[in-house]
Design a protein around this nucleic acid. Structure first.
Lengths: 207, 207
DNA sequence: GTCTATATAAGGATAGAC
DNA sequence: GTCTATCCTTATATAGAC
């Protein structure tokens, strides 16, 4: 961990912050911890990011920009190739997120940061996420609604919230019931993705 | 809020801590904030609880003892009255939790505290919850497994994790939506509980 | 049990040399 | 861009009077 070689100071700070935010939360992580883990000087955080709050935002932006694009690309392909089907839409939503957990460059820490962000009801953080990535949820919402003409808008949003919650906590592997690892990490991820897609399709179609 | 009259110092501290932990998290809440909100002296926290960590544990114990008992009582009644059916079991799990969101004595803040605890990777907190309340999840797990003989243990645990995540997320959302008017709030809670139960039954039974 | 006052540590942020 | 040194605030916890 805390790999330093051939990464810029800025990138090392982002990586260390991501790891520590995942483990201790935003308020629970000090800039001193971040700079120590990143093996950079304390003053470097304020030089590169201006403040702790900006650093938090950058940790999100770095991953969410890519994740959002992957999801939307997959969504458009799904709708074009298999119109009217729920399963490919949910795959487009779920698989890019769970794939992050296999990322060797810190994505697995980021999914835990994401789970924390859900629990945070911090206004600034929520506004940042809503402003920058709300359009992704809206596009998925529309595509799913088109597959479920019998389900009202209110009920549909409830069910999408359930899926978002299930995905978030599945990604972070936060269940109280632990998965004893005989299967490899990658196999576990793929099984979870497949199970969540099935679970969600069934849930969305519930009478 | 922060009602003071006819509550002991200890109870006022617990109530204020619950509110603030919900809003700012454990690390993000200072004892100074707690004592100010509770309208008690700063030193009172250490006098009554010994440390911040003990205060956190007491905030959990106060609600979880009752919630666990309600869930288990409802579960046993469900299994006795309608054996082999999933829906009453899920109702026994979900309704007592969502009912907390309607509690006028701070339960609505506590559900957000619960969501934070779920996201916390803190070892002490996780151990405390697992040690004291793990048996509840195990009993539900067994009861649900008995209704789904075709589903393997591993897959079942995955699906239970999805439900726990969806419930946690749904509950935490409630905490925020509060204070908008009590009648529609109660209706909203009941609709969400009903929707989540349907969603979960369908998901559990997915082929 | 409750207060004031304080010990002691850690936090974010900055100034200014290099 | 990176360093050292430091300012200022806030934190937890405790000691001791009442």
């Amino acid at each position: 961990m805390t790999a330093t070689a051939h990464f810029s100071t800025k990138e090392r700070i982002l990586g260390a912050a991501e790891d520590l935010f995942a483990q201790y939360g935003f308020a629970g992580t000090s800039l001193r911890q971040v700079t120590t883990h990143a093996d950079v000087n304390l003053a470097a955080v304020n030089y590169h990011f201006g403040s702790k709050e900006n650093l938090v935002a950058e940790v999100f932006r770095r991953r969410l920009d890519e994740l959002s694009e992957q999801r939307l690309t997959a969504l458009r392909a799904a709708v074009a190739q298999r119109p009217g089907e729920l399963e490919p839409i949910l795959t487009a939503f779920i698989e890019p997120a769970l794939a992050l957990t296999l990322d060797r460059q810190g994505g697995s820490a980021f999914v835990r940061v994401l789970a924390r962000a859900y629990a945070e009801k911090n206004e600034r953080l929520r506004k940042f996420v809503a402003d920058n990535y709300g359009h992704v949820m809206r596009e998925f919402s529309k595509a799913i609604a088109a597959c479920l003409p019998g389900v009202g808008k209110e009920e549909l949003h409830r069910r999408l919230d359930f899926i978002a919650g299930a995905l978030t906590y599945a990604m972070a592997d936060f269940g109280l019931i632990r998965h004893h690892g005989s299967t490899s990490e990658k196999a576990h991820c793929q099984k979870t993705a497949a199970a969540l897609i099935r679970f969600s399709v069934a849930g969305l179609q519930s009478a």
